[in-house]
Every structure is written in structure tokens, then in C-alpha cells.
Amino acid sequence: MNIAIIKYNAGNIKSVSNALQQLGVNHAITDNADEIRASDKVIFPGVGEASTTMAYLKSKNLDLLIRELKQPVLGICLGMQLMCSYSEEGDTLCLGIFDQPVKRFAGDLKIPHMGWNSLAETRKPLLADLPEHSFVYFVHSYYVPACRDAAAITYYGIPFSAALQKDNFFATQFHPEKSGDTGAQILKNFLSL
């Protein structure tokens, strides 16, 4: 199995690579269009700011590439937000794979939402075989509201989409690569699609 991790100007790519290594899965970190298209599965990680990251993806024509992928694709954190239609962060038009907005947390909450929070209303296949209310690790200031594409819901003041799935596209707002055994199970679920 060939796994491509999309290489771009984002943090935490190494963490995702380490997590796959721990699972004994071969993978390449690449921005080569042919290599990405030819891979069995694609992971689109990301930590960073939405508008600068989208601008970078466009400059490398990675925006069109990601949208047109037919194999299973997993977006993580900023990767998930960029797969939505629009982000309030930097007033950014995103990839539009999920027809959802990305909003900033408001109110008395501490921001970023940082730490371990639990998953509810989990859906297969991405979140199969998890104990009820499993905890996963989040670090984010923007969120996707609860919606029909949600594969899991988490509560932080309000319910939001902790994960999304639609057709061949999957995404997690949390970091499976930093979520201990639960995260490893979620990565395995994705890898065995």
C-alpha cells in the first residue's frame, strides 16, 4: 500500500509520518502531483493559518489536485478546515469539498480549544471500533459546526464537528497522530478503507 502525505508549508507533517511509522506503514511525504495521484491513500495534515496555507496550495496547484482525488483522503486539523467551503480565519475561500463554513470559537471559552476531549455520535467507517466517548487530542481556535457530514461530534461550549466524512473524503479536527491508542485506531480505520 502506498500512502502519500501531502508536503506543504505546514507544521506537524513529521508527527503524522512518525505515527504511520509506528503502525509500520510505508509512506512518502511529497508534493509531486503524479505521486499523490498514484497513491492508494492520501493524508492532508496541517497546522497553521488558513489564508497563507490556501495561497501556498494554490501556488503549487495542489488545491485542484486535492479536490479531484478519487482515493480515500484524510484531512487533519487545518487540513480538515481547508477542505470546507470558507474559513473566517483570514476570510479564506477553501477547497469546498465539504459544503460547510469554518468559524471562530466565541464567548467565555479559553481559546485555543486545547487538550483531550471526547467523541460522541461517532460514525463508521472512520470512527469504527472505538469505545464510547473516546478522548482525542485537539488544538484549534476555529471549528466546523455540527452538520450532516459530521462523523463525530465534540462539545466545547457548543457541539461542533470533530470529524467529517463524505464519499472518499474524510477529516478530523483533532490530531489522531497525537491521540494515543484511540488515534492509532482511527488511522488504522482510514488505512484499511
Binding site: G115, W116, N117, F135, T154, Y155, Y156, G157, P159
Partner: peptide, 8 residues
Amino acid sequence: MNNLAKRI
């Protein structure tokens, strides 16, 4: 509602 865990 907030289920954010306290960290050790």
C-alpha cells in the same frame, strides 16, 4: 456544555 478533560 464542555467535556474538555483536565490534563495530567
